[in-house]
């Protein structure tokens, strides 16, 4: 792998290669270049992961013609698809090297920091939401209980913006979460649940379920479940499968312009057809 990356850099197939370099025994996200090609010897593939495609997006914003090589797991590839869909990157400017990914029954060994679920305490299980539950189990809570549990989780939020900052598919120049008229940015504590729901709505058709937001969250809020929910709705209502391809239209249901194909309406409860 290292030889291939070196030859790519030497031949100019890519201008930069994004991966991880071991520095003092810590794998940190690194941008390898032709000028410092010896650094490629320290390239590591480890459970550590970071939204490298986000760095790629920033680079492409500065220099639209840059060619980028990238170490990619499945989640990175899904994020790349979303970024292609939204014109943040072009498929022809990105080359990926596949890295080992999440475990499955067929593949026990895996390299991903999301592998080992942290233990969930009894208190959180009793009054909050266990991050490792399936979405169906969370949906099955009654209206009152569901509300209590979600609001318990949201109340912990310290508005660090970690979820947004790590998110590989958050690329907007102007973020609604920074907008005083929408969520109230000044005071320390966020407006709940608006802060989280605004982000959730924006994650519909974008979130590729990499779980980096939940990894980053210091308060252990089950963000993945929340975003799984909006993407489940996007799939049920619009037949939109996020991140599966770079050729689909962007998922946009807000504003006046709609880019989605009309699809037959499924029978729904609660709305008058």
């Amino acid at each position: 792998m290292k030889e291939q990356i070196k030859s790519w850099l030497e031949q100019g197939t890519v201008d930069v290669f994004l991966g991880y370099r071991e520095v003092d025994h810590h794998p940190i996200p690194w941008c390898f270049t032709q000028e410092a090609i010896e650094e490629v010897d320290d390239l590591v593939v480890s459970p550590a992961r970071y939204s490298l495609e986000k760095i790629a997006t920033h680079m492409a914003a500065e220099d639209p013609d840059i060619r980028i090589g990238m170490l990619a797991r499945d989640c990175n590839n899904r994020a790349l698809n979303v970024l292609y869909v939204w014109n943040q990157l072009r498929p022809e400017q990105v080359v990926t090297v596949e890295a080992n990914c999440c475990p499955s029954p067929l593949k026990e060994h895996a390299d991903c920091s999301y592998l080992e679920p942290g233990t969930v305490g009894a208190y959180k299980k009793a009054v909050g939401i266990d991050n490792h539950l399936r979405l169906e189990a969370v949906e099955a809570y009654g209206p009152e209980e569901g509300r209590n549990r979600w609001m318990y989780e949201f109340q912990k939020c310290i508005k660090c913006y970690g979820c947004r900052n790590i998110c590989p598919v958050c690329f907007c120049r102007e973020c609604s979460l920074d907008h005083d008229d929408l969520v109230g940015t000044g005071p320390l504590l966020p407006d709940i649940p608006i802060f989280h729901l605004v982000r959730a709505v924006h994650m519909a058709g974008r979130c590729i379920d990499c779980g980096l937001c939940e990894d980053a969250c210091p308060m252990d809020i089950p963000l993945r479940l929340l975003y799984q929910k909006v993407n489940r709705i996007a799939m049920d209502l619009f037949d939109y499968r996020t991140g599966t391809s770079g050729d689909q239209p962007p998922f946009s249901i807000l504003g006046d312009r709609v880019t989605l194909e009309p699809k037959p309406i499924q029978p729904v409860t609660g709305a008058e057809a």
Binding site: P143, E144, A200, V230, L237
Partner: peptide, 18 residues
């Protein structure tokens, strides 16, 4: 489109029983 937007909202608010 409107019905889908509203259904989207209803589904999401459904998590909170609203």
């Amino acid at each position: 489109m409107t019905i889908k937007r509203i259904t989207f909202l209803q589904e999401l608010l459904g998590l909170f029983g609203l």
